[in-house]
Design a binder for these strands. Structure first.
Lengths: 206, 206
DNA sequence: ACCTGAACACCGTTCAAGT
DNA sequence: ACCTGAACACCGTTCAAGT
């Protein structure tokens, strides 16, 4: 409830997760992220790490040095886009309609989570854990948009930020299976969004 | 729309997926399913197949002979419970309230899909493919319950059976991550169920 | 008709040696 | 400080040989 004022200081320029300092190290870091991006796009988040290292022209040990876990690599790949989402959320706080602002952000978030196969799963895990600063920032940003919409009475008051984001991950996860059937994916999102507005009974009682 | 009358002949006793005939083969089949069940319960659907074979006292080749793909094994494990769900659906067609009947069945379905980690994903895949008779039966059963509720006007008319089931899989998938936090899982289901009833605006317009 | 398990392929992960 | 790649462990999958 007090999330909105607390967000005033949210940085759109999220801290880049400790980049290496030495020239060659940084070059390898960037190459690995770039190759991981294309590999994830082709094969999903469970693409072969060895192949990523090979395509980046780097030993497998170097990959592990920079990214001890696969999640670290996934996060690095989507880091910039997450920063964009943070910025968008902050900008949307000034939009006239609290409802449209939230919905529009959720659409962007959903598009992000569906960028490659397995990302929705990965995001659900990462956001849940919440140990990363970029995720924490995004949660704050989402919280601000959500609570504004709730204060406007257009979103039910009993859902919290994690509910909201996990529901989006769930829809994105489901959409992965729909493939070209965007109509189905759209209907599922519609159902969830309508559910977020509240039960018909509650609304009728106002 | 014509799903309900078509369902009259649905068999609660689903056809058992071609059990082997020879005594030893059948014994191995049953042992594999039993060990797979406990392995899935412990490690999820991506438990080691070699360990399952070993624990069943059977060569790995025998496992592959009976279950060419992992999905086949998963389906075999949950087969009986799916038959129970079919029976329950048919029984609930006679319940007085179409809405309560559907909701109560969805709860049962959700409980089933959350039996072990990875099952929701597996179900989503299997139901989507829809090549198995037990899945086809369940889809028919769900379709009957759904269309009855839709005819009663308590569920929005623009969702189909696959939408409904995939939304349940999505909720179950999300719930896997909640663990002990059943309150969050409950809230997510509530949101989806309310969404299934329709948009507040639509309801208000009646 | 069915079972067995060696054999092959592939991947993740670590770590001693190197610059 | 960082890189390399051999080495190890583990798993999935196939298939020739056996009953």
């Amino acid at each position: 409830m007090a999330a909105a004022p607390k967000l005033v200081g949210v940085s759109t320029q999220t801290v880049v997760s400790e980049r290496p300092k030495r020239a060659d190290a940084r070059r390898n870091f960037d190459r690995l992220v770039a190759q991981a991006r294309t590999a994830f796009a082709e094969r999903g988040t469970d693409a072969s790490l060895e192949e990523i290292a090979r395509r980046a022209g780097v030993g497998i040990g170097t990959l592990y040095r920079h990214f001890p876990t696969r999640q670290d690599l996934v996060v690095a790949v989507v880091h910039d886009r997450m920063a964009e989402l943070n910025a968008k959320a902050v900008a949307l706080l000034d939009a006239p309609s609290p409802e449209d602002a939230l919905i529009s952000w959720l659409w962007a978030y959903l598009e992000h989570a569906g960028e490659f196969r397995g990302l929705a799963d990965s995001m659900a895990e990462t956001v849940q854990a919440g140990s990363l600063t970029c995720c924490a920032d995004m949660k704050s940003a989402a919280a601000a948009l959500l609570s504004r919409a709730q204060r406007a009475g257009v979103i039910r008051s009993d859902v919290d930020t994690l509910d909201l984001l996990q529901l989006m991950h769930a829809v994105a996860w489901s959409a992965e299976r729909c493939g070209k059937d965007t109509a189905r994916a759209g209907r599922m999102l519609t159902v969830v969004l309508d559910g977020l507005r509240g039960a018909p009974a509650d609304q009728a009682g106002r």
